[in-house]
Amino acid sequence: MDRMLFQETFSQLHASDGAKQEVLQMTENRKHSRRRLAGAARVAGIAAAAMMALVVTAGAINVATDGAFLEGFTILWVGDKEFVAQNEAGDEVYMVSADDGIDFVTEEDGRLMLHADREIDITDALTENGSYHYEYEVTVSSEDGREDTEVFTVDVTGSTEEWTATQRNGIGVAVTITSENGEVSRDILVGAEAMDAEGAATDMESGGKSASVVEYQTAE
């Protein structure tokens, strides 16, 4: 096989300029988020526990939005697939999740990554120990302006091929991600049972919103 001929031939294969420009534009678009007054979305009477019906961490926001734009923001309000964050200057950001869920543990290029207050490669730890535990703090603001620091814990067990990761926020919401045979599923537990390692889901009513177990599959 003539290596030079091979190289001369395949060096004539190029991606289109349009495709390259598009990806540059995509990164520009990712920096911008929808900004609007929370307005009617900030409904009075949504209790703190209901706000955390979908657990969203500062780390997850950074991952979802690709970073710097939301540094220094704290989560103000959380809905089904959307949330409002605000910084000290009073700037508000309203975000809608493009995915069915916001994963705090993801598989990337054969590595298992934890997205918490920072990104942590937990592959080796899980391979060696069969488990991984991490704790970090998140500032959560309620509708009434109160700010609390919550300790989030993450526990991952299993192997890099089949694992279960549970994130608890300490005030009654736990999100569990399970990866098995290439399929990822998620559960959200709300209530006292979420404080324990395992437990059944409960329904909870608060301010007209109810939170219950949500189970859904990824599009893959």
């Binding site: 598009e22 990806v23 995509m26 990337e108």
Partner: peptide, 12 residues
């Protein structure tokens, strides 16, 4: 190509 480059962008 685009998906791969976007992952690179996030790698920091």
């Amino acid at each position: 190509m685009q998906e791969t480059l976007l992952k690179l962008y996030q790698e920091d």
